[in-house]
Simulated scan of single mutants.
Amino acid sequence: MINDEKLTLLVEKIKEVLPKKESIPLHEPSFIGDEWKYVKDCIDTGWVSSVGKYVDLFEKKLADYIGVKRVVAVVNGTAALHIALKIIGVQEDDEVLMPSLTFVATANAAVYCGGVPHFVDVEERTLGLDPYKLNEYLHEIAIIKNNQCYNKITGRRIKVVVPMHTFGHPADIDPLLEVCERWKLIMVEDAAESLGSFYKNKHTGTFGKISAISFNGNKIITTGGGGAIITDDEDLADLAKHLTTTAKIPHSWEYVHDMVGYNYRMPNINAALGCAQLEQLPKFIKKKRELARKYKEALRDISGIRFFEEMHFSKSNYWLNTLILEKSFELKRDELLKALNESGIMSRPIWYPLHQLKMYKNNPKMDLSMTEKLSQQIINIPSSMGLWRGSNE
């Protein structure tokens, strides 16, 4: 039986945190800096496409902020992850370990390389890959041959593990790195959602050999579309830049290509938008963390609802604020979603687990009991920077 009183209380408590508007989206961009100035400069000078000063500037500023040697800006986060997996050596029939509880692009990027997504479980405390369960699983199904990891059941090589930092909350990276070392795996981080998030005072995306970030319109900063490959490996960065610019050999007028490349270049006009957004990133993170604090305070006395918080070893950008529905809560997820959305508060469930999608249902997978449990418990609530009702600072 639905407890209407508790439902009403929850909706009202969320409303207390939010501005008094008829409709509040889940996450929208905020343009409060020099976005128009930089974009107008592109238009005025005619440098709107794949060449221009803002691409180089955006890559440099982003590398400085994250703390890596190189950034390669591309058209979206999926393209960034595709190229990262490709140049790290994912080949036809290689298995790529990844959470089933992630956005579909994580799996798609592996398939673009001819790889096989192999789904592993997540842990409740971080929503990221469970390193301990993964290690036990590999003891059951994997073997080391010629200093490489192979699946004893399928016979395929297991090449890479891809942790994803869910909703901006860092996965527990150190034990995952130990698993990678033990099982001869390469880590490629899907940091699409975690720009501005830190694990043990080090930015996400800097632990793997190479990683990917997204700047889609709903991310913490946006370039309209857009993504980036990040790495400390200069050779990998040079190869990523070459492949994403159609593998064209530099020349003043000739068009000679030496590899099968991809037209994944970020246009200058998008990079201009990104430069302005990046200048606002510290302010955005401050606002989002304050919004998360307000949600936590507002919901603390409602039994059966847990506001998801960062772990002690991490600092999250709180990209999407998250509620966990616990067993004692009498409302069903879909009824809660209906109540929130009908109140003008756009809310959504987490992504459908990838191992349950028709194109991936026959892929290799471990026990995914936590994934399946969390997929029914998680709700995202409005998280835009502009929702913070503090000072104008």
Rank of each mutant, 00 (worst) to 15 (best):
Q277F: 06
I229P: 01
G274C: 12
G304W: 00
C275V: 15
K219W: 11
A339F: 10
I302M: 13
S347A: 15
H251Q: 04
F329N: 10
K219S: 13
L243Y: 10
A272H: 06
G227R: 10
W319M: 14
A272I: 04
T223G: 10
R293L: 11
R348A: 15
P282L: 03
F284H: 14
E335I: 13
K288M: 08
G225T: 10
D258A: 08
G304T: 00
L336P: 03
T322H: 10
A237Y: 05
E279C: 12
L320Q: 08
L337M: 03
F307Y: 12
D233E: 14
E290K: 14
A272M: 00
I220K: 04
I345K: 10
R300Q: 15
L273Y: 03
T246Q: 12
N341G: 02
I229Q: 02
S343T: 09
E335H: 14
T322D: 11
K296N: 15
E279T: 13
G227F: 04
E326Y: 01
A276C: 05
M346K: 15
T231L: 12
P250Y: 02
L281T: 09
T322V: 15
E254R: 02
E326T: 05
H242P: 00
I230E: 02
K248H: 02
T244K: 06
E290S: 14
R306Q: 15
K338S: 14
D235Q: 03
H257C: 04
Y262M: 12
K332D: 11
E279P: 11
T246C: 08
P250I: 00
L340S: 09
K286Y: 12
Q280M: 15
N317I: 13
V256F: 01
K241L: 09
